[in-house]
Every structure is written in C-alpha cells, then in structure tokens.
C-alpha cells in the first residue's frame, strides 16, 4: 500500500524523513523579501527590442512595513505571495485585502466592516496554488 515504484515514490515514513533531511539546509531561502522597498521587474520584447520596467513599492499598514514579496505581471496585475490566489489592478486594493486575509496580524479597530457574504464588489482577479 506504500510501495516504492520505479520513480522512487513512496508513502513510507522513512522516505519522508530522509527527504526532509536532504532539503532542510535550503529551506530558509527566499521565502521572505525582508526590509526595504520591494522592487519588481517586468521584461518584454517588442519588435525585437528588449524592455525592462522596474517598479519600487514601499508599503506600510499603520506605520508597520509590509515586507513580503510583491510582484507585477506584464498585464499590470499586482500580486502578493502571502495571498497567492489573488491579483489586483491596484496595490491599494491588494493591501486592503491583506487586512481582511490576515485577521491575526491586524487588530480590529472597528472602522468599517470587511466585505460580507455575496459582496462581489471589487471582485479581485484570483489565482492560487
């Protein structure tokens, strides 16, 4: 019921433990942007010309910096890795969604309600993993 097969797939606990042992040295890499402005890079080629667009974002909520990675697609949609299922036309909308999506990180100050059931105003363009 948890046979090794010719691709090395296994449900055996020992296999899982061994794999984590092999990978753990690199687990701290690149999952967090860190302090400072967030720079995004968009590249494209148009009629043989290479285009590079760099954009810097410096975001704070109640004075506290937002330091995770933010990206911009070539169609202008802004996304943030902590809520990878969502894309926004506006970085401000994105940051508003962070407040809704991470209730443990933001004290409820009682000024306005999060969108309720069935409220599709501002439906973001969404994607996920």
């Amino acid at each position: 019921m948890h046979d090794d097969d010719d691709l090395g797939l296994s449900g055996d606990p020992e296999s899982v433990i061994e794999s984590i042992g092999r990978e753990k040295a690199g687990l701290g890499e690149s999952v967090h942007h860190g302090p400072g402005a967030i720079e995004t890079v968009r590249e494209s080629t148009y009629r043989g010309h290479h285009i590079v667009v760099r954009t810097s974002y410096e975001i704070s909520i109640d004075g506290q910096p937002v330091e995770g990675h933010l990206g911009v697609s070539n169609d202008g949609q802004v996304h943030y890795h902590a809520i990878p299922n969502l894309g926004f036309a506006s970085a401000v909308e994105l940051v508003e969604k962070l407040i809704d999506a991470f209730p443990d990180d933001f004290e409820d100050v009682g000024d306005g309600e999060p969108p309720g059931d069935g409220d599709d105003s501002g439906d973001p363009h969404a994607g996920h993993g």
């Binding site: 809520i83 990878p84 999506a101 991470f102």
Partner: peptide
C-alpha cells in the same frame, strides 16, 4: 484561473477564493 482578466476569478482560483478563510494564503 488567471485568464480572462475581466470580471470575477476563474476556475481553480475562484474555488479557493470562494471558500475563503484558510483557503486564501499559501
């Protein structure tokens, strides 16, 4: 679920977003 852009979320993405809560973060 990234295309088309206009309108609501799509397919796999929309299901995550429709459920919401812990289905939103990574």
């Amino acid at each position: 679920g990234w295309q088309p852009v206009a309108g609501a979320p799509h397919l796999h993405n929309r299901v995550h977003v429709w459920i919401g809560g812990d289905m939103l973060p990574s």
